[in-house]
Design a protein around this nucleic acid. Sequence first.
DNA 1: TTGTCTAACTTGTACGTACGAGTGGTCAAG
DNA 2: CTTGACCACTCGTACGTACAAGTTAGACAA
Lengths: 365, 365
Amino acid sequence: MENKKTTSLKYQQIEEELKQLILEDKIKPGEKMPSENILTAKYGVSRQTIRKAISNLESEGFVYAVQGSGTFCSDASRFKKESKDIAVVMTYLSDYIFPKVISGIDSVLSDNGYSIVLKNTNNSRTREIQCLEDLIEKNIDGIIIEPSKSNVFCKHKYLYDKLDSYGIPYIFIQGAYSVMEDKPHVIMDDEKGTYLLTEYLISLGHRNILGVFKSDDTQGQNRHKGYAKALADAGIPYNPEDVIWFYTEDRAVHPYTTLQKMIKRGKKVDAIVAYNDQIAFHLIKAIRELNLKVPEDISITGYDHSQSTGNTDISLTTIAHPQQELGKIAAETLLKMIRNEDVEQRIVIEPKLIIGNSCKRRKAT
Amino acid sequence: MENKKTTSLKYQQIEEELKQLILEDKIKPGEKMPSENILTAKYGVSRQTIRKAISNLESEGFVYAVQGSGTFCSDASRFKKESKDIAVVMTYLSDYIFPKVISGIDSVLSDNGYSIVLKNTNNSRTREIQCLEDLIEKNIDGIIIEPSKSNVFCKHKYLYDKLDSYGIPYIFIQGAYSVMEDKPHVIMDDEKGTYLLTEYLISLGHRNILGVFKSDDTQGQNRHKGYAKALADAGIPYNPEDVIWFYTEDRAVHPYTTLQKMIKRGKKVDAIVAYNDQIAFHLIKAIRELNLKVPEDISITGYDHSQSTGNTDISLTTIAHPQQELGKIAAETLLKMIRNEDVEQRIVIEPKLIIGNSCKRRKAT
DNA sequence: TTGTCTAACTTGTACGTACGAGTGGTCAAG
DNA sequence: CTTGACCACTCGTACGTACAAGTTAGACAA
């Protein structure tokens, strides 16, 4: 709110200058600041003006004064007193992956005396920016963030730079912006996951394998890569028309109707590699509506091993997504960062194939 | 930290005196404080001393100064600056009801610029007390709380009294402690819900209707009441041995094995009124394991309309639990309380029967 | 009646001075 | 070597003055 004014009040100028010295580490934590008299001489202002500047810095927590001894730069980690709050920014507060991830995060954080500040971006960039601006205003000890539309170029790196300069650690989960791959992130090897699934389908004798992927996050891109690579390795030609791409916004409709159209047009479909379990279940409904059977007519695979309680007749062949584990790892890593310990930049969780009854062997063609 | 010293510095004395005026309501919120010059004359000190005193009061939030106009007493409710944080205390961060409730809460709160501080009690009293103590320390504008084991007597009312005295509004969801039924709460008419379900089963010709309920929350008690009342109204004798009671801790095992034992012992079971959808699905598995069919052999009802994505063969007859709505209503009511508007103490959401394919008509006996 | 201007009053910034209070080092006395 | 007086230096309190910046109400002219 101060930046609209260009008024350069003396005490504000001095305050800013001293703050810069600290932020640029010219004056190190614990080190003594120049005395009031020295500053008075240096800046050619009265001692009262210096005191006003220092008093502001003190109330902001940058320095502390000891009568008779001097004014000192605050300890590194004590610039802002810790709030014991950690923000968790998620793309959706749905009943899909979110509950397990948050419960994993919670189990670690609450054991360590932290509270969770929950934020929801609805997978929208605008809202992610809002969230971050909001969090920068607050007193937060760290952030666990699931990037929104991680495959779209990140135009708001400046906000993350701001977090860096404020010394607020953050860690990405599920994906990471390409411009910030050097920042800590916990992800799954999505490419390997769909590779395993596709390979499995091929081993069952399937050849006409459809892929259904989300186009606006890195997970979708990587899962597509794994699918294509498995086909290539098996010598099956990759056909772009065998892939249905959908966006976050049309996920409930587009895959469903497109698949039905393709089948109605007579396209031969042996098996489907779906983006995730949720989509797979949608597609199963679409298939059954056309009086085809899963897995007898069409095999299908999911991703995430979401294993909804209600699913009593089909257990998907899918990839175990240890969501709770992912939450725990992210939280533990963030705590290490808060304690200034070294952490791995890139933590990859290995995918594990879970075989259910949603796929069936075909006779060799 | 100042009180150890008895030194009566002039600016501290003046500060205290002015603070007393405000606390004793001699100077009312919004009212203008005496001007610096007047105070200078009154106390016989320099203007700088007065300014120091007022500056401290300002940073403590008691007053605010407007250049050119004067210094004013802060509005009553603004003594503690608002944090724009609202705590949500839930019993479980599971993928069951929690996601929809939190998403309803989030939709209202984030539109109004609030952040959610998420807390999890694991339905344990100890942890609920911890959470509340933690939140009292923090600067929170309000609390939405799902009481843990709401049917067990509340021994920690003193914490809620503390919240009252701090002026932190709170609202209960899903249940309310009996000693605090005068506090705002948003609940479902659970009794009516199971009444509707049981009545429906009776209308289908069922007579041997089992009930499976949770014993340590008010929801379980009320759902049991509705079940018993519907039987009574239909002239069917209530038999305590037809009810399986379980605790939070053994919910995954006890109902499952007990039902199987009862059936194996030859007990006649036409239909089951389950505590909720989750339990219902467990029981369906238990029934199918004994090579019985749902709904042909045994009809079953749920509660909550959780409608897991994965459930493709059975759609439960259940009670619509507008969880998202409940979250929204709770959040909106809490915001009203924060704005000091009047609210209803008891908001009851009417249950709605959802008919699926988990129940089938029996021939009259 | 309406609009403008000014004077009086408010708080904000900035200068100067003085002394009190606490810290840490020097140095001579014990 | 230890002790204690002393002193130079630090920040804290308190006084005084001056002017800048913003607000408000009343005087005054159109």
